[in-house]
Design a binder for these strands. Structure first.
Lengths: 197, 197
DNA sequence: CTACAATGATGTCAATGACAACTTCAATCC
DNA sequence: GGATTGAAGTTGTCATTGACATCATTGTAG
């Protein structure tokens, strides 16, 4: 039998992975440092070496979440050809998919962002959202969106996407209707933009 | 000194009121039944008579939240004259105001809605959203919105408003920009709708 | 006036987060 | 090669909490 070595090897990573699972399946409130330690086959005090307190673990989770979100958005844009509108559709769908599958995690990501001492978190978030900003710029270049600061122009669009995600996780929209709703919303938004441009 | 009577008189109400304050000021996670009991000058077991467990208290909070939200929305509509667009603006602003001031409560309201055995909650929610649906119908009657089921037609609009609230509470929009953003979003939405109708 | 139902009090238990003190281990330095 | 040292893990403890069982008080219906 493989005796467990005194040192786990990569406890931090293992804790984060299991924590992400727990948050997804049972919510943030069900996340217990001690349970994580048990699952990792480690004593209840061990996590403390890697996360001074529970909040530190949540922050790390949020940061990892932004990294993954960014990657998924990037992959969506890249896989949708070169034209603006299909790219936007694909990206919005990817965002909503992420928000739906990892609702609790997304909440964590947003909650952590305006807390104090969130330097790294802020950066991770900005990297993830850079994908969206680039997309906005392309839309502006193609004349589909009004000119101006991308942050401002994209705000209503982003709000709509985020809101759809909220409706889905809030149970006000059935899972089967999501894709249609996203497509509707994007089309609606672009109509409103062209009229203004 | 007034000896506390054995019976509090209206402990349930007092607990809910204090709980709402705590949730607003320190978040759901900071809500402790025992602390509530202490604040109410009552033993730690007393709340149990009114709320079998913590979740029951949260559900009651959510329900009260929907009642208040409905009232605020109603009041916003009624105070904005008879025309559709100003009514919509006022209502959206009122929603975002509620969502901003009571972010944690709103989250609770949404979270509880798709949990099991939420009969009463569901009804409270529908009563609150009835205001919005009526408004959509008026918009359709005036030709500002496309025809169809109000629930469907209003979905993108509602998502946008909800999303703005999420951005504000997520710290991605400054408080001073909120009103402008709401106005922008409504105008944008209506442009998109007219083109389709 | 008595029984009873509602409301509150008291005591206890297991789980948890936070913290301190001690132990193991591996890398480095001489 | 052995001593040193610091990171990683362990063990023990404490206060807080939610949940639960049992008992006490009080208003009210009969």
């Amino acid at each position: 039998m493989s005796e467990r070595p005194y040192h786990h090897g990569n406890l931090r990573t293992a804790l984060l992975a299991q924590a992400e699972r727990t948050v997804r399946e049972r919510g943030v409130h069900a996340l217990s440092l001690r349970e994580l330690a048990r699952d990792a086959g480690v004593s209840h005090g061990a996590p403390r070496r890697h996360f001074p307190d529970r909040q530190a673990l949540l922050d790390a989770l949020a940061e990892a979440g932004f990294a993954r979100l960014g990657a998924e958005l990037r992959s969506a844009v890249d896989g949708a050809g070169g034209a603006f509108e299909p790219r936007l559709q694909a990206t919005a769908a990817a965002y909503v998919r992420f928000a739906t599958r990892d609702a609790a995690l997304l909440e964590l990501m947003f909650a952590g962002k305006h807390r104090a001492g969130a330097g790294t978190l802020q950066e991770s978030a900005e990297r993830a959202f850079a994908v969206l900003l680039e997309l906005i710029e392309q839309g502006q270049a193609e004349g589909a969106l009004e000119p101006g600061e991308p942050e401002r122009v994209g705000m209503v669009l982003f709000a709509t996407i985020q809101g759809i995600a909220a409706l889905v996780t809030g149970g006000m929209v059935q899972a089967e209707q999501v894709d249609g709703l996203v497509a509707d919303a994007i089309a609606h938004f672009l109509r409103g933009s062209r009229a203004a441009a």
